[in-house]
Design a protein around this nucleic acid. Sequence first.
DNA 1: GTGCTTATCGTCAGAGAGACGACTATGATC
DNA 2: GATCATAGTCGTCTCTCTGACGATAAGCAC
Lengths: 251, 251
Amino acid sequence: MIVAMSRYDPSAFPPFAVTVDLVVLTVRDHALCALLVRRGEPPFQGYWALPGGFVRLDEGLAEAASRELAEETGLRAHSAPEHGSVGAHLEQLATYGHPQRDPRMRVVSVAYLVLAPDLPTPRPGGDASSARWAPVAELLGGNPADGVPLAFDHGLILADGVERARSKIEYSSLATAFCSAEFTVGELRRVYEAVWGVSLDPRNFHRKVTGTPGFLLPSGGTTTRQGGRPAQLFTAGGATDLNPPMLRPES
Amino acid sequence: MIVAMSRYDPSAFPPFAVTVDLVVLTVRDHALCALLVRRGEPPFQGYWALPGGFVRLDEGLAEAASRELAEETGLRAHSAPEHGSVGAHLEQLATYGHPQRDPRMRVVSVAYLVLAPDLPTPRPGGDASSARWAPVAELLGGNPADGVPLAFDHGLILADGVERARSKIEYSSLATAFCSAEFTVGELRRVYEAVWGVSLDPRNFHRKVTGTPGFLLPSGGTTTRQGGRPAQLFTAGGATDLNPPMLRPES
DNA sequence: GTGCTTATCGTCAGAGAGACGACTATGATC
DNA sequence: GATCATAGTCGTCTCTCTGACGATAAGCAC
């Protein structure tokens, strides 16, 4: 087998550049938003793009994603969920390697998905004008005239990331990654509503999440943040899987 | 931003080797099996490994996976399901890039998952002694003494692929990818039983799969392959999602 | 106080799944 | 041919969960 014989021949392998790209999602103002940075040089100069960068030769892929995330947002991300943690959730999304996705060289990009609570200030890289939170509804709204399309294949990557997030909160407790350490059932419901773009019945939602063992842990306090009757505060419980899942309403 | 400035500098990027590795699964003798090849050279000489190879500079990742699959098994795979097709299902699984996963060089491997019907002869590469179908229960059985561990991180990749397959047939019609073009409800049930390693009630299973619109299309004929009363033959319908899903029995 | 908001508890009908009985249609064996 | 074993198919019952509500609770603004 010729292929097997040359497979790990160190002297003659096709050289690739490997990058990580980040789909960083959060919920702001009742809308799902993605972090974008503006490109300062060609190609796609002036276009908005996903944050990311080269993987170094001595670091792992998740490590590179984590480093880029910290550089751009100051967030510390965990691959494994931690209870009541302030860090963001990070998981590998997919890998994109079309030969012509970068016009200058062969680049394979490993995309990571980050779910973060609403950040106090989007101060990526210290340069406020070069980064923003963009509502994904505007970016993916089918109508390209709504805004400049993203650089490279980042529109595709973003769409995959959003779909992953939308489906993942169905059968896991990951929606809590969008909330701060303590949150109310109503805040969690607004996360689901923003990510899915739907309205949910508050009573059925309350029954579902409070009735699932390990999803929510009462933290003892109450809050009146949202106006109206004070709501009980919770932290994320240890459960990671939702069984049975909370399915999106039919399209 | 230093990172952004150097991000796509074509003259100075860290060079990586990029490979694809294949988790090829099928159901043989009521057991879920994976395709393995024996390594002929160091490192891990004599170990069993997942089939795979280098990505060429002018081909896409799925393209490379598809090419390797054809070279090793003769199968033609489709990323998109086709009705009644004889080809296998192929989808991207995940990407593995730990800096020391290959002792000689920095290799990033994009793993693909292939679900194939039982192949008449496992004649990979034309060299029968260098390839085999191995029951995944033996490979992942927690007890490493059951067999030689796989080369590189292929044991981890295989475990991820098996878990993907197990969960994916819950909420999609992908289990039909393990069947030949025409199959009976009982054959499809035995696929689920082999992949999940459980026993399912034939009556409830029959009600579920025949009651899900678009899952199965009656092809008109009947068969008596399995002995007993002749069973109706079906082909895979157009539906890709199972809603509601068919959940595994609780562990 | 009234009115508005949000939170939380209850009730009811329908869909779906698990457990399992009953019947059907073939081949194998006596 | 009668009997048996095997596998396929249809029905029934119960329980759980969900979606669609009604009703009540506890804050704030006026």
